[in-house]
Nucleic acid binder design. Structure first.
Length: 340
DNA sequence: AAAGGGACCTGGCTGC
DNA sequence: TGCAGCCAGGTCCCTT
């Protein structure tokens, strides 16, 4: 499942491949993929055609392509504020794939390889053009296709159709900082304005986040998953962060000390940084059947998907519980429930 | 107003 | 073997 590290891997790939290219045409092959687009498919096609991609930006699990003004291809500079963006959310199973005019296919796995081996793991670095790998690819779930002037294409592929794309206008950020990772412009698409900054965002006010978290009257896992509080964390990284911080997800946020909240946020930050360093492999979890969720994030998962397996810290079998209609994995020894 | 729960999806897997 | 039912979960929307 794409959470922050996976979406960032995709964003880095787009930054290296589609920025600077001009969209010639767009096709919507499944209406549900554009269900959040006012005006529907026709509107999206009309608003994206003729626009040049100025930047690939991400906040949490949302990513977007800033669009240059129509009729002025490539004229949008870093000093201009983008007025519109093509927004994408991958949902559960979405992928953004670049197909080159010569028929070669580029996949986000390329970006993963680069992030893993790249110099200083610089997230802003563009990808070397030599890094091209052909991967098997199915058009069975192709939902939206952009074709660039040079014949290259950007595909939005999504099996479970929880993802979506739309073109939207931008609004200023609430704090005046950059809208997201990948652009310094202090704007972000209106449909993303309610999404909080994520844990890898340099403009994140961590002290304020600790205060806001403790002000919530809810369970701590629910808070971690609330994208309006802090973004980018999904079910998998939430469980891993809670395990590292030795907290059970049901603990009330307002009874945690500031130090404990900081510890948890640091754990979530660390686990996502580590996943990003190996490119995030959660897409494979859908297709690879190895010991439940094993195969995802390699050997690094300590709790998620490990029901019955020994806790790497204390050896007690990891337990599985239902929470928010999802599975939660935790160690009964290291992660004690809150007292009643 | 904040918090919590259900709906939306598809395909692989399980069990009868 | 076939098939019904379960399960995965991110986000929006509605109710309380």
């Amino acid at each position: 499942m794409p959470e922050l590290p996976e979406v960032e891997t995709v964003r880095a790939g787009l930054a290296g491949r589609v920025v600077g290219r001009r969209v010639a045409t767009a096709e919507v092959l499944h209406p549900r993929a554009v269900r959040r687009q006012p005006g529907g498919a026709a509107e999206l096609v009309a608003r994206v055609a003729g626009r040049t991609v100025a930047a690939a930006v991400r906040r949490g699990k949302y990513l977007w392509l800033n669009l240059g003004e129509p009729g002025e291809p490539g004229e949008l500079t870093e000093h201009d504020l983008p007025q519109e963006a093509l927004v994408a959310h991958l949902g559960m199973s979405g992928q953004l794939l670049v197909q080159e005019p010569d028929g070669s296919r580029r996949h986000d796995a390329d970006a993963a390889a680069f992030v893993a081996d790249g110099p200083a793991r610089d997230l802003t670095a563009t990808l070397p053009p030599t890094l091209v790998r052909t991967v098997p690819l199915s058009t069975a779930h192709l939902r939206v296709r952009l074709t660039f002037d040079d014949g290259g294409q950007l595909w939005f592929v999504d099996q479970r159709t929880f993802g979506h794309v739309l073109v939207a206008g931008t609004v200023p950020t609430a704090d005046g900082g950059p809208g997201g990772h990948g652009s310094a412009a202090p704007v972000l698409p209106a449909p993303v304005a309610h999404i909080a900054r994520d844990l890898l965002d340099p403009a994140l006010d961590r002290a304020a986040l600790v205060r806001r978290t403790r002000a919530r009257r809810t369970e701590v896992k629910r808070a971690l998953l609330d994208q309006t509080l802090v973004s980018g964390v999904g079910n998998i990284y939430a469980d891993e962060a809670l395990w590292r911080a030795r907290l059970h997800g049901s603990r009330p946020t307002d009874r945690l000390s500031p130090a404990r909240v900081r510890e948890l946020l640091d754990a979530a930050t660390d686990v996502m940084r580590e996943a990003l360093a190996v490119g995030g492999t959660s897409f494979d979890a859908l297709y690879v059947d190895v010991e439940g969720a094993a195969g995802y994030f390699g050997r690094s998962l300590n709790a998620y998907g490990r029901e019955g397996l020994p806790c790497p810290r204390c050896g007690r079998p990891i337990r599985r519980e239902q929470f928010m209609n999802r599975s939660s994995f935790s160690c009964p020894g290291c992660q004690r429930r809150a007292r009643a």
